[in-house]
Amino acid sequence: MTKFLTLLSREVKSCFYSPIAYVVLCFFLGLTGLCFYSGVGFLSRGATERTVVEAFFDSIPFWIGFILIFPPITMRVFAEEFKMGTIETLMTAPVRDWQVVLAKFGGALVFYIVLWLPTLLYFVVFQQIAKADAANAAGAYWGSYLELLMAGMLFISVGCFASVLTQNQMVAAVISFCVITFFFLGGLLSFFTPNIAPEFRMMASYCSVLEHMGEFSKGMIDSRRFVFYGSGTALMLLLTHQVFQFRRWKA
């Protein structure tokens, strides 16, 4: 356990040592600030059923930005170690493969959570100043963040998988961007092609992060979503572990 925590803290630190972290941090703060501003602006235009939490999480710029943060967070986790050769020092210390995989995943997740912390403040401030509820219920509020956490876990595991495939960080970034975008477009399938088979539509909506987010921000927490994100993340991490071994074994 101490070994895992050491590996994890190394991962978190190396996240914050890299300049990319600060670029992402600034970009993300700017983006969420903008989304919040436009969400509040939307509400002040007249009476509406939507709450500020819904308006915030349901805007297009928010989702575009959301997709964009994963590749830079995860692209370096394995690719950089393979490139620098440090993977050899790391994997000849008495550590197990899965400890390293989980630590890399966990490190990126911690950074992701740190990214989100300031936005909690937005809604607190909103409630203080506007004397109105930010969401319909506490459930909607925390539900939104829960959804973000789970979607984050899935996409970070996708990013880790992309990073273990190559020693080129750019390639890793492009792969994870494509896969994550695919998830999103998959969710939008029913909008683009209204007359597809209902099975496809069902599947698309099962995978649609956008749709889930809509539900969660209204306070509907659906256990099927936990299964989806949980199993998706587990599958991606398992694949990452397999490829990680394979790359060294065939190296």
Binding site: M84, G85, T86, T89, T92, A93, P94
Partner: peptide, 14 residues
Amino acid sequence: RQHLGYMPENVPLY
């Protein structure tokens, strides 16, 4: 691994 100290070629370090 516990019994071995290994220094790889080109000494990769962080």
